[in-house]
């Protein structure tokens, strides 16, 4: 075996050596560039407090998810008790029917139906170093405008990345981070809209609607797509009801 290896064609051996160099050289190039760019990033963002603040934000978001799960569980317990009470009297049964109706109106019940799916995403096509990055990423106002257009088109239920849009919903922007219902969300934003398909699609297709988003999609590659969809599931609102001060009349 050894004898036959040493007796190889010298040209082939040279080729083998060249290929043997190829992989480490590519790896070296990759590492050098990554290291150099990493240094550049770190120098601009190396702020003393960022790491602990980021950890705190993630910890609070995790806590929020746990609290929402507890809240959902308690709401389900109360529902079961009310259902059992409804079987005891006609008055309780009437109240339970009214409760179910109000929960559906308020967005506290899951909804399923036909409608449209809207996807909004940051551009992935513009090279680094572009001066108008602002135009290529999605903002909280874009989401607000999309929700406004969907309601205008007759939407009956909407969620954004599984966050149900209800009367207390705010789309809030801190730096480049977007919060919906006080929950941290990242693009792509998938907006599920249940409603009359033709009317909702018509609202999105209307050239006078969402002009800014459509122009940024065409010029800067912002991701914006509206598609017809059937049997969409919109989850119930899982946040706090926040009715503590207002008194009904």
């Amino acid at each position: 075996m050894r004898a036959s290896a040493t007796g190889r064609d010298p040209r082939r051996q040279r080729l083998n050596h060249a290929f043997a160099l190829l992989i480490p050289a590519a790896l070296f190039g990759f590492l050098v560039t990554a290291q150099w760019q990493g240094q550049q990033d770190r120098s601009s963002i190396a702020v003393r407090y960022n790491a602990p603040l980021t950890d705190a934000a993630f910890a609070l978001q995790k806590e929020q998810n746990d609290l929402k799960a507890q809240l959902q569980d308690l709401r389900a317990q109360l529902d079961r008790i009310q259902s059992s009470a409804a079987s005891q009297s006609g008055a309780a049964s009437e109240l339970e029917r009214r409760l179910a109706e109000l929960k559906a109106q308020a967005g506290l019940s899951a909804a399923t139906g036909d409608g449209v799916m809207v996807q909004l995403d940051d551009s992935h096509t513009i090279p680094a170093g572009t001066t108008n990055l602002d135009q290529a990423i999605c903002h909280s106002t874009d989401l607000s405008d999309i929700l406004n257009t969907a309601w205008r088109g007759g939407a009956q239920a909407i969620s954004v990345n599984a966050q149900r849009v209800v009367s207390s919903t705010s789309v809030y922007c801190v730096g480049s981070t977007i919060m919906v219902n006080g929950t941290l969300l990242s693009p792509p934003f998938n907006i599920a809209v249940i409603g009359p398909q033709n009317a909702v699609l018509g609202a999105f297709d209307d050239p006078s609607q969402l002009r800014d988003i459509k122009a940024r999609r065409d010029v800067h590659g912002l991701g914006f797509r509206v598609t017809r969809a059937n049997a969409i599931n919109v989850p119930p609102y899982d946040g706090a009801l926040t009715v503590r001060i207002a008194i009904p009349q």
């Binding site: 702020v47 407090y49 960022n50 790491a51 603040l53 934000a57 801190v174 730096g175 480049s176 941290l184």
Partner: peptide, 9 residues
């Protein structure tokens, strides 16, 4: 989130 300013965070 690491890219946000401390004020934003």
């Amino acid at each position: 989130l690491q890219l946000e300013t401390p004020a934003s965070l």
